[in-house]
Design a protein around this nucleic acid. Structure first.
Lengths: 342, 342
DNA sequence: GATTCAATTGCAAACGTTTGCGTAATTTTT
DNA sequence: AAAAATTACGCAAACGTTTGCAATTGAATC
């Protein structure tokens, strides 16, 4: 505020030009070694701190990455951010994190603000509203001003973009196949919110796996849920209340499984003997669920790290677009491990 | 990048001064209404986006809040950030979020970088290392340049600072008192990492409550843990392996309780009849623990909101320091609810 | 003593925007 | 018709830093 000292201030003190101070502080050999030291000591004493803003203006880059993400209330998203930070902190970047709350309007607003702030690139996980209605103009506009945009988790209609995702299809396939191998005959799926890529892909993986084993998707066994335990509980309740009950459930994420477990245990079904359960994300509490929860790990932190690397290569002039799909990993725990297959 | 259009570019196009363009875009009445419209339309057409960086330089404020926080892997921290965003998004601010991973070196590094970026203020939750060794010079330096610093959750040695915390002492007191009222005789405490304010305060609340009821702290019943379920499991195991076993446990947070429950159930103790359990934070999964978990809610989101309001009032010239301690709330669920007190 | 060279330092422009003040041009008032 | 007022726009400085180029100084060479 008031007491910040600038290069000009120091120049006045030493009765010399700002350029001399600048060079001295940057240890430029052009400046006499003694003058350099004297100036550096003085700057240090008065607590001089370089004003990065002026540099951003001059160099047309802000050393900041914009991150637009629907929420950070789940492990997956926080792990992504941790991954981004882990790579970008040493590289000297800061993160501008924006939560859209799945709102298209907010996403647009934040995008504009980040552009106005001249972030060097944007990592974005599209909001559900943007998805549902294919409201892409704001993204297209950003891309057209050649601002690097890296999509995380959720697809974007255009193909030639930068993207880092997990192979959700494959993960879902693995989970479903595992349930089949455990002897499950009626495998239900708790389907995530419509329109979101991960929901769609996981359903498709589930569907494809059933097909591979000569089964069809039974609409009665597919219920739609939000990403919350409450929603998982309600959906599972309706599954258990109908005639065709499942003997295996693959849910769109782990939180949903916590809700499912609650009601399954309340109704006195045995996990995994009567109903086997597999989730997605492998959250830290998965192993500490009422019955240790099997889950598909999607290497959340690695998504952040990979996105960060992609960003850095963009900063180094890499112009081609790249797409990464990380390998999911099935973690088998008690909730689905049947020792004697039926 | 290359194709960003500036006010100067537009000025060239219209063969007029940049000041005219600036005023036109800001709808300044000094400019002829028709010229204004024409210019605005053109700017819109070519996708002009105000460069906020130059404004930051000019106005000496960046409309950005720096947030320094040890981690975002727990509900509490993500809720704080959601609270900050909820208030600061409408106010036109962006968040620079920095994860220190409890490292003093990183905290210092980030603080410098945020100062260099001239953030308008900093909300900080001190790292454990900073705490353990009272390494406060970097904070003092930042304060001395009259940069508003708002402390969240963790105390700072100086008294006259801005601060928003939960009354952890009170929360711990309530939890312990509740266990006493449920008839617990040997109440253990899973003590958080040393040096961290929340750990200390919660222990003190536990201690004070025992004292109120004429009991002393039994060192054998106090185990130190990290904020993870694994750590909670290990500590509880050692509790159950010793002669003086607890019949009630108050843990420093909910994750720890998940670990505790796991081992308690494995060893076939009944919750809450034989061992009652109360956690802290009231995470979203608390109600979906193996036994629905009682917990002290610390209104995490409200800490973020309150901090944001404090920040905004600082921006409006409020110079006095303010301290807020939010009221904790005890949420009683199955893990501690004994119907017939012994 | 004139010339060349190296060692230091200063000048000025640039990045994009805002804003007080000056200055035309036009209209209104006397 | 002259004076005053209004309207509309331009000029230039400012924010803090970097950097190519010019300028100054002093010493070394011819």
């Amino acid at each position: 505020m008031g007491n910040t000292v600038s290069i000009k201030d120091i120049a006045r003190k030493f009765k010399c030009a700002p350029s001399t101070i600048s060079r001295a502080l940057n240890d430029h050999p052009m400046i006499n070694i003694d003058t350099r030291k004297t100036i550096q000591e003085y700057a240090n004493k008065v607590g001089y701190q370089k004003n990065t803003i002026s540099l951003s203006l001059l160099n047309q880059c802000s050393n900041t990455l914009g991150v637009i993400i629907p929420s950070i209330s789940h492990y997956h998203e926080t792990a992504i951010i941790e991954g981004l930070e882990a790579i970008l902190q040493p590289a000297g970047y800061l993160l501008n994190i924006c939560l859209t709350n799945e709102s298209h309007a907010l996403e647009k607003e934040y995008l504009d603000r980040l552009v106005a702030n001249r972030v060097d690139a944007i990592c974005i996980s599209l909001s559900q509203e943007t998805f549902d209605h294919s409201l892409n103009e704001h993204i297209d506009k950003a891309i057209s001003r050649s601002l690097p945009i890296i999509f995380m988790d959720r697809f974007y209609h255009a193909l030639d973009v930068d993207r880092v995702i997990t192979d959700d299809f494959k993960g879902a396939f693995m989970a479903t196949e595992h349930l089949i191998q455990m002897g499950c005959q009626r495998i239900a799926h708790l389907h995530g919110p419509k329109g979101i890529t991960v929901s769609q892909q996981r359903f498709k993986g589930y569907e494809a796996c059933l097909k591979k084993y000569g089964r069809d998707v039974d609409d009665q066994l597919v219920k739609q849920v939000m990403f919350s335990p409450e929603s998982g509980l309600a959906a599972t309740k309706s599954l258990l209340d109908q005639k065709t009950k499942p003997d295996g459930i693959f849910a769109v994420n782990d939180e949903v499984c916590f809700g499912a477990m609650k009601i399954i245990q309340e109704k006195n079904y045995k996990i995994p003997e009567e109903i086997a359960l597999v989730g997605f994300d492998d959250i830290p509490l998965a192993a500490f669920a009422p019955i240790a929860l099997s889950s598909v790990s999607r290497q959340s932190k690695k998504i952040g790290e990979q996105s960060a690397h992609l960003f850095l290569s963009k900063m180094n002039g890499m112009h081609q677009h790249q797409q990464f799909a990380l390998e999911p990993e099935l973690i088998i725990r008690e909730s689905s491990q049947r020792n004697h297959c039926s």
